[in-house]
Design a protein around this nucleic acid. Structure first.
Lengths: 115, 115
DNA sequence: TGCATAGCTGCACACCTGCGCAGGTATGGA
DNA sequence: TCCATACCTGCGCAGGTGTGCAGCTATGCA
């Protein structure tokens, strides 16, 4: 199996076959990017706090999230906008109040690992 | 249980008791930071590619990692230095060649979730 | 000894990101 | 109608981050 792209086929390898295994292990670059983007969303302490709160206590309003995390409203709003754009959380409007929840299964799996 | 810190006790809440639940759900800020730092290490496509290659095919040399990922040597070196400083990978020297592996159990758990 | 290779480091640059501030929209009550 | 509340948005700044380049160290072989 020749998995090494042509543009780097001339470079010396230490263990040629393991390079092919590694390329197969990495898989589709788009897939890798999807996951690195997912991890990036959890890589901020404030966002992670928001997600943990939502994941473990269920739907919460923006103001309550602000108080619980110590952030101020716009910061929470902006964080939630990012997470919403990524399809990680979703908000349900109820009068003036919007309650958010975690809706992405993969992210829920990751949050589960945060013991 | 009064978990709301004094400096935000005066702010209006939507669901007072759920705020306390949320604060309990977030837990220790230091712990949250530890995890967000962990996620940050996986939040770069290149680093994630390196970790996936190492996790799924075992110990690999720096040059081979460079070929497999398409990065150039210094970039791989720097990424590995970061991961090494965080205790995520470790290198075993064998002559001129250094083979790296993933040694952090939590990170291995996360990599396992990248299906 | 001389040379090629494997890997590491420092630096400078462009780039991105989180945050606070000020102000805007929409809902509900007086 | 007027106002307070809940949430959202745009902007600008400070700080961090990835990357390429050039050069360094160390190992192994002829």
């Amino acid at each position: 199996m020749h998995l090494v792209p042509a543009d780097r086929a001339d470079r010396r390898t230490i263990d040629g076959h393991r390079v092919c295994d590694a390329i197969a292990a990495i898989g589709d670059p788009g897939h890798v990017r999807t996951w690195s983007d997912r991890f990036a969303l959890l890589a901020d302490p404030n966002r992670l706090s928001l997600l943990l709160a939502l994941h473990r206590t269920g739907p919460l309003a923006v103001s309550d999230l602000a108080i619980a995390t110590g952030m101020n409203d716009p910061a929470v709003s902006q964080a939630l906008r990012l997470l919403r754009a990524a399809g990680v959380v979703a908000g349900e409007k109820e009068g003036r109040v919007v309650r958010y929840s975690v809706v992405d299964a993969e992210v829920r799996g990751l949050l589960q690992q945060v013991s």
